[in-house]
Nucleic acid binder design. Structure first.
Lengths: 254, 254
DNA sequence: GCACAACTCCGTACGTCGTATAGAGTTCAA
DNA sequence: TTGAACTCTATACGACGTACGGAGTTGTGC
């Protein structure tokens, strides 16, 4: 039942795993697997069936080995999650047109992360105790800093600005992913669920008790054909966040 | 291993539970417990020991009943999570000074939610399949809408503006909570962990490969005495987000 | 050529979880 | 007073991560 965590083990061992520094063993049978194979299988499984389906047994089965064989390569499941995280961080390509200006670059980064989280919905469920200090994660962060380098911000402000964008994307993406997963899980569409809830709710709620909520709910229902639309909410909010950053950038430049 | 989920059961039953509509049974022994007692115990346990310690067995033990007795009151653990969510949503008091202007009200709401998530760190770990349509959750949403009512936004814009703030707070709070939990879990402070990681990392990373990351890391280390400071990041970003909203409000008013 | 250290692989087992099932005990309506 | 409706509980099942110890495989040093 417990949630998944990153890290928590020996930092040195974690970093060696993340950077692929494995001293080649001199004796013993040739390994059947590699760490990369296990990580790839784990990512695929988590993508396809969710974090709750990601068990050491399932991974081992899919790879054709016994469960405990995995522990020859990886100290624990938490370390595997670290490796999965770093691997998928490598999917985010840097902005192509670096001349387009910081705002376009930040917008690109926001959308790229939004897409990343949707490709790998388990990412936002993992509790990140320690950031996975792997090569792809560090590269991704470096590219993000480059997007706001040289526009008049201090080093700390650069980090803080990236942080605002990423946190907003994470919050919005999390809501989007949570909402989308229910369709697969329950086989009930938003509309069906709402229609099943509405009559009972009506019996319980005085029509005048939540006037604003009622108005907004009706408006959303007409506009979105659903109770809410996370993608549209994200698209609405991102420019606002960037506007706020723009005000800061202008004040620093002027 | 699997994560916890809200809802997913029969919507009608869920709503009846949330609103406390229990038809008094006419026969049978007097119940030892109430739903409210179970929920209160569950919230306390999750607050104190985390979502991974929240098991039906632990709750039942603490209440002095057998595990399966809980299922007399609640259909499943997912419904219990729904009830826990609605309960803690009742802790957020509305802005006291309603005359202070929409920006002050939104700022208050953001900080109140930030505090709420930190009091109940499990909230952001739960996967919200369906929003828990309970009385306290709906009241909280109504109060949030009131904060931006009558300032020239459409009904949908009001919802979207609230959404931006809440999502940003959620993203930022999630990072803060994740980071703070590791201290309890591993008994290793940020500094200790960093000192254990740095030498191994140095062996692996060319000093020139991540120039910006290196600069930012040094600056953060001096300023925060840590790799990063989630609370400070939140305090930095919130005004930016509000600035972005302010631009929208002004454009609608003008 | 041989012995052993070092290594990979894996079967079994433990304690955890949510909850299905079925039975025992309790209360009240008929 | 009887039986339906209800609460409570013991037991059991199939999952989980992983500790442990043993079997099989390979390269090194003699």
């Amino acid at each position: 039942m417990s949630t998944e965590y990153t890290g928590g083990g020996d930092p040195q061992r974690s970093i060696e795993l993340l950077w692929g520094i494995q001293e080649r063993p001199r004796r013993g049978p040739k390994p059947k697997l590699t760490v990369a194979m296990i990580v790839a299988e784990a990512v695929q499984l988590a993508d396809a069936e969710g974090l709750s389906a990601l068990s050491m047994r399932r991974i081992a089965d899919n790879l054709g080995v016994a469960t405990m064989s995995l522990y020859t390569y990886i100290p624990s499941k938490a370390e595997l999650i670290d490796l999965m995280m770093d691997t998928v961080h490598g999917e985010v390509a840097p902005p192509e047109d670096t001349e387009a200006g910081w705002r376009a670059r930040l917008e690109y980064i926001a959308n790229a992360n939004w897409a990343l989280y949707h490709r790998h919905p388990w990412m936002l469920q993992v509790i990140i105790n320690r950031p996975p200090l792997g090569p792809l994660t560090m590269t991704k962060y470096e590219r993000e800093l480059e997007a706001v380098d040289g526009i008049g911000l201090t080093d700390l402000e650069m980090d803080s600005v990236i942080n605002v964008v990423i946190r907003y994307v994470q919050g919005a993406a999390r809501a989007s992913i949570d909402a989308s997963q229910i369709a697969q899980r329950s086989g009930m569409t938003d509309l069906q669920w709402w229609e099943a809830s509405a009559p009972t709710l009506a019996k319980v709620v005085d029509g005048t008790k939540f006037p604003l909520g009622g108005r907004v709910g009706s408006a959303a229902g007409e506009e979105y054909e659903s109770a809410f639309d996370p993608a549209r909410n994200f698209a609405f909010g991102l420019p606002l966040v960037l506007d706020g950053i723009e005000a800061l950038v202008i004040s620093r430049a002027g």
